[in-house]
Design a protein around this nucleic acid. Sequence first.
DNA 1: ACGCTGTTTCGACATCTGTCAACCTAGACG
DNA 2: CGTCTAGGTTGACAGATGTCGAAACAGCGT
Lengths: 126, 126
Amino acid sequence: MPKQAAPLALIDLSTETPCCPPIAQSRIPAEVATVLAPAFKALGDPVRLQLMSMIASAPDGEACVCDLTPAFELSGPTISHHLKTLREAGLVDAERRGTWVYYRARPGIMRQLAALLTVETTAAGA
Amino acid sequence: MPKQAAPLALIDLSTETPCCPPIAQSRIPAEVATVLAPAFKALGDPVRLQLMSMIASAPDGEACVCDLTPAFELSGPTISHHLKTLREAGLVDAERRGTWVYYRARPGIMRQLAALLTVETTAAGA
DNA sequence: ACGCTGTTTCGACATCTGTCAACCTAGACG
DNA sequence: CGTCTAGGTTGACAGATGTCGAAACAGCGT
């Protein structure tokens, strides 16, 4: 394993870092896996996946907690906890505007995760 | 949202089911989230993410356990357990050929997950 | 039959999930 | 200006789930 300039020692998920080729193309380094796994883990829950979808697909690109909470059979604090998980995973951004809190998706990291899973349709083999 | 023929009542991850538009495009139904979340969860571990990458990027499209295990500081059973998780999530296929077991990635579901995370670069807004 | 390879089972330990209570913030009203 | 009400977050806790290691089991080759 040759050491590159090692610019990926710490990957800033906040940016649009185009850090990684698809995992089907080259083996992912341990550091990258360590940093990106939490993002996948955050999406590894049905409620959070739906929350993420509701936020990302919101008309104005942002969703109010007051719209998210009643969409589930869960209590307010539980939704808040899930949102915190998404926030800590770097998937969403929160902003308080007046009484309500609005959540906004980060396209950068989502693009990164999508790129990671990309499979060339032609090189599918078989 | 009119009901289509509702073919996604049970989503077969084994197939190339083009079941879902990107989550940034339309809100993901609860059933889809329930079915796909385990796949993300399976990728939500650094070791499994690396395993997945090693399998998907293997020259012949398949990787032997005997190659995977020594790449980690973990015991054989632990690697086996992680591989089982990937298998149960529908991400990989196992095949015993002689003494060794070979794992092969399923491009279908990976494409599906990637599509789900896709964000139109143009519609990024802002 | 023996040894090797990989999986499974079992158990200890850690982490995650969801709820209740308390707290903080912002706006409304007297 | 003080207080009251409403919306969200945080902290603490039981229950469930996941992680990993040690030992035992099953398939394959010699």
